[in-house]
Design a binder for these strands. Structure first.
Lengths: 231, 231
DNA sequence: TGGTTGATTATGCGTCTGTATAGTCTGGGA
DNA sequence: TCCCAGACTATACAGACGCATAATCAACCA
């Protein structure tokens, strides 16, 4: 396994598209990883082809195999990379206990990738979800402290649901953007989403009396048919 | 394009599956649709093969093409079918204004299919999402009435986000179930999710003072780098 | 200078998938 | 009885994809 080396003075690393932001004088290995992250996040694992990643990275499909063993290995490499990046980001967030950073967690650059991977059942991103749940759990602890009543449901269960809900937003970004009238990953959309989430999170969506009635009535409701499962 | 015809000799192509467990004496055409719904919901559109659907339905791949034109046409047929079913379900829900039915909307049988289709960017399910947003919007209207303050963000924007959040739960059912310790589509899990959602929805997750500070601080925050986009 | 190593490419192979086509079987009307 | 429409199957074809291999090229070291 080669490390992130600086390429030899290869001058012809340049046929690529990128100029504006960041660096395009990256290692081919790094370019492949970046291209894979974008493609996996945008198109999903299945729809993404090795050839497409290679084309975006400006290399041949064979080189991809040379650096990463297979398509699945490349996915795992991306997963581990993102896992590290999230760890790093979490450390920064913990030092700055602002709520905004936490709220828009899933709107970050890696959010799209994580969301896609979780929905695609990537075998190695389970721990990422669990860690996000743990983060939400710690956050819920503070919320529970300022609650008059006692929560009736285990905190981790609620944390898992809140986490899944947060991830649902970038997952359905296309439809959300359509409802917003602007790209939710664009500057305006990102701000709009953050402000809306702050409003949503800071208010109860249903009355506690209604919830109590519904919860009581739920336990005795025998409803809806079941569909057969695929053998 | 043939419609849902009644097969000549077959005893019944009855409105099907309404009662308890559906039967296997369905039209081949109906069996194909049922199998496709399950496969698409469980494996996603791309991972699902025509041959797999045919095998589950107990027919040959050719018959699938005979009834539905192509794989994409089959998907559209499923979308329209689910769209009708949701319409029908909505009518029932509106007559029974219980909150529980609304909360567990995405836990219904078709929820998995809708969630998958939305995440898979199915071209014909956009209207379904928009309708769910409208439902949520109507629901938010009642919530806003019992709010002391005035919402700062457009109601439809908040409705879209809440809708996406709700759909995120069945989408990440695998990870949610792992955190729950039981299958969230099973009897226990379904009840647990419903009760947890009632608890979550009936309480603010962050304080309004915190939210105000965060919202104020957000507009002047210049944070995080941007990643390049694929051309 | 010569040779080894690693980055990189070109090319081909086997498989899977969607699609197309031709053929088979069955029931019901004339 | 004939026969044909429609449900259904078997098989084949073309393309795409992941994967593998061999060849080429540049740099570094003895």
């Amino acid at each position: 396994m080669t490390t992130e080396r600086t390429p030899p003075p290869t001058p012809a690393d340049r046929p690529i598209k990128e100029r504006s932001v960041a660096f395009e004088d990256l290692t081919a290995r790094a370019r492949i990883r970046e291209a894979a992250l974008e493609h996996f996040a945008r198109d999903g694992y299945d729809r993404t082809t090795i050839r497409a990643i290679a084309k975006t990275a400006g290399v041949s499909p064979g080189l991809l195999r040379h650096h990463y063993g297979s398509k699945e290995d490349l996915r795992e490499a991306c997963d581990h990379y993102v896992f590290e990046m999230i760890h790093r980001a979490n450390a920064e967030i913990l030092s700055d206990p602002g709520a905004a950073a936490e709220v828009q967690e899933t709107s970050k650059p890696f959010g799209r990738y994580v969301a896609r991977s979780l929905a695609d059942d990537s075998p190695t991103v389970g721990p990422i979800f669990d860690e996000l749940v743990t983060m939400t759990e710690a956050w819920l602890t503070r919320a529970d402290d300022s609650r008059p009543d006692t929560p009736t449901v285990d905190r981790r269960v609620r944390a898992a649901l809140v986490t899944a809900m947060k991830i649902g937003i970038p997952l359905l970004h296309e439809h959300v953007s359509r409802a917003l009238g602007t790209d939710m990953f664009g500057p305006d959309g990102e701000r709009l989403v953050a402000l809306a989430l702050l409003d949503i999170y800071s208010h109860a969506l249903i009355g506690q009396d209604v919830a109590a009635v519904a919860a009581a009535g739920y336990n005795e409701a025998q409803h809806q048919y079941r569909r057969r499962a695929i053998p």
